[in-house]
């Protein structure tokens, strides 16, 4: 935000500008904030008022299993995504401009493709008669098709693929700001390539690492399409569990409770992130 308009304090002068804001604000309040608030409300009132829905977090093994599965897959996804994203961002930040443009295209292109299409593509690649199994069997390397899909492996592949661009952007932003002389300086002072990386470059990218991890983790938590398709209903993550409760089992209390917990977890994570790094910079980097 390079130039901010001077604030106008007089109500009379600001009224016309508020009229510009009004349509979006009304739409957002009536058709977004209100239904969202209602989700929270229902979680405390149905089937009967009280905390009975939330008690299930402690008492219900099924609910706990869903949360544990979700957290496990999200942590695995975040770790793999961060490693892959870091390597890409590192190569990107030191590449010559012409190469950089191509790398950017390859990183951003998937962002423009529907998540559903990408999940479908992974199905065609990973399934029993998919491209990988056909190729491996054709080459005589395996007799039985590998189980690459409808399990946590398939979910992780699809989610990592979806998340990598979101990790690369904040990581790249933090690397771009590093003075390019620092690593040579460290080496000139006697540090090996690896030591220079570990003691100078890596610590300086810490804000990027934190931001990227939290972002990827948050996006993963509430992810629906990819886990639903690549998990094939066998591995239940929280979003699909919620969908089942509402559309198939019509258990509003349980569904909204899970949705509310998810929302609260995300808000807490974002709040923690904002205490550590400047969120505007993270989002402004794309």
């Amino acid at each position: 935000m390079a130039v901010a308009a001077p604030p106008s304090r007089v109500l009379g002068a600001s009224l016309p500008w508020w009229l510009l804001i009004a349509p979006a604000l009304i739409l957002m309040l009536a058709f977004y904030a209100f239904p969202l608030a209602e989700v929270l409300w229902i979680s405390f009132t149905e089937p009967e008022p009280g905390l009975s829905n939330y008690e299930r977090l402690i008492t219900s093994e099924a609910v706990q299993r869903v949360w544990i599965t979700t957290l496990r897959i999200c942590i695995i996804t975040t770790v793999i995504t961060l490693l892959a994203g870091y390597v890409v961002a590192y190569a990107l930040s030191s590449a010559p401009p012409r190469v950089q443009r191509w790398m950017f295209l390859f990183i951003l292109l998937p962002l423009w493709i529907s998540v559903l299409v990408r999940a479908f593509a992974w199905v065609t690649i990973l399934r029993r008669q998919g491209l990988i199994n056909e190729a491996l069997i054709g080459a005589g390397l395996i007799d039985e098709p590998l189980r690459l899909i409808w399990n946590e492996f398939g979910i992780a592949v699809g989610m990592v693929h979806y998340m990598i661009p979101y990790a690369v952007l904040p990581l790249y932003a933090s690397m771009r700001d590093i003075d390019p002389r620092l690593v040579p300086a460290a080496r000139g002072l006697g540090a090996s390539r690896f030591e220079a990386f570990r003691s100078v470059f890596l610590p300086l990218t810490r804000p990027g690492i934190i931001a990227a991890s939290v972002l990827v983790f948050i996006f993963s938590l509430g992810f629906y399409v990819t886990p639903a398709i690549l998990g094939g209903g066998r591995t239940l993550m929280i979003a699909e569990y919620i969908k089942l409760q509402i559309l198939d089992l019509i258990r509003w209390g349980l569904g909204t409770m899970m949705a509310s917990t998810l929302l609260i977890a995300i808000v807490l994570l974002l709040w923690a992130l904002s205490r550590i790094v400047d969120i505007r910079r993270v989002f402004g980097s794309g």
Binding site: L36, L221, Y224, K243, I246, A259, L262
Partner: peptide, 8 residues
């Protein structure tokens, strides 16, 4: 997440 808003 869309799923949360979807319920509401």
């Amino acid at each position: 997440p869309s799923i949360v808003y979807a319920l509401g």
